Computed example of a mutant assay.
Amino acid sequence: MHKLKAVFLIIFLFFNVQCVHAFDENGHRVIAQIALSYLSSDAKKRLSVIFGEDYQQLFLEAPDYIAIKEQNLDSKWMKNLHYVFFNAEDESFDPQTHCPHNQCSVAAVLESKVVLQKAKYSTTQKRQALRYLVYFIGDIHMPMNNGFLVDRSGNKIQLQKNDLSYVSLNWAWNKGLMIEKDQKWFALSGQYRKSIDREQIQLWSEQVEPAQWAIESHLLAKDFGYRLAQNKRYDSVFIKEAMPVFDLQLKKAAIRLATMLNQLYSAID
């Protein structure tokens, strides 16, 4: 019996650990697809010159690229790039505290931006950097990727579903809510695109610092993520309250991704 329990525990941990790192892959594709429609003509020209006409594909393949990289046993350090871990008393972002050894989503975005901006890097390196930028901007905007260190951003908090199975709080936000959409990613991106107004674009475009995005998401994690986990249930009540925040963060990530690229390439001669 003890051996049987051990086997079930191993299986449980395996399937929960595999799915907790980031937005559902389709969530990242939604962000990428929306961002493409907000790129300036200058940015599109520059991207086309550097990467060829398939630069749009680099956006959409970012989730698969990251997944393949992480399957490499030598790339375990990459798992830290999905997160910024905060302590309860933290009110600002400190690189040494929240991004040790440059292993956090903020560093992943900033370093990718440098590679894209500097002429000394090869096209191969720039292609990788573009995929990283697209992907990890999405991660910064997921509230529960910016939770508390003590519970590994909700990975150690278990919620019970209606079928009596358990998922982590991080999984609920990163995977579960997108599953609840039950839509193709390209259809969902079109719906989001139509719902974004000019005031939102202007507001979201004004904040271009990844560290501030992380703080913003951390506050959402405290105000919504952890609060909704208090009853230890992943149910219709949780989904109904979390979904508007989830929707907003995907759209916000897309606009900020486009804004960063528009500013980056407009500044290059």
Rank of each mutant, 00 (worst) to 15 (best):
M1H: 15
K3F: 12
F12Q: 14
L13P: 09
N16Y: 04
N16H: 14
Q18W: 12
Q18H: 08
C19R: 14
V20C: 13
H21A: 14
H21M: 09
E25Q: 13
V30R: 09
I31Q: 08
I34N: 03
S41D: 13
K44Q: 05
R46T: 11
S48L: 10
F51G: 04
E53W: 08
Y55L: 00
L58V: 03
F59L: 03
L60E: 00
P63G: 09
P63D: 12
D64C: 08
Y65N: 10
Q71W: 06
L73D: 11
M78Y: 12
L81I: 12
V84C: 06
F85N: 02
F86C: 04
F86H: 06
A88S: 03
D90C: 01
S92E: 15
F93Q: 08
D94L: 09
Q96M: 06
T97Y: 15
H98S: 13
H98C: 08
A107H: 06
T123V: 14
Y132Q: 01
D139M: 08
D139V: 00
I140S: 02
P143T: 01
P143S: 02
N145R: 05
N146E: 12
L149C: 00
D151T: 13
D151L: 06
Q160G: 04
N162I: 00
S168M: 06
L169E: 07
N174A: 03
K175G: 03
G176V: 09
I179E: 11
D182Q: 11
A187F: 15
A187I: 15
S189N: 04
R193G: 05
K194G: 14
R198Y: 12
E199C: 06
Q200W: 00
L203M: 09
W204G: 03
E206P: 07
P210M: 11
W213E: 02
I215Q: 07
L219S: 12
A221T: 05
G225W: 09
L228I: 03
R233N: 06
A242I: 09
A242Y: 01
P244Q: 00
V245W: 14
A254C: 01
M260Q: 15
Y265I: 02
Y265K: 05
Y265A: 10
A267K: 14
A267F: 05
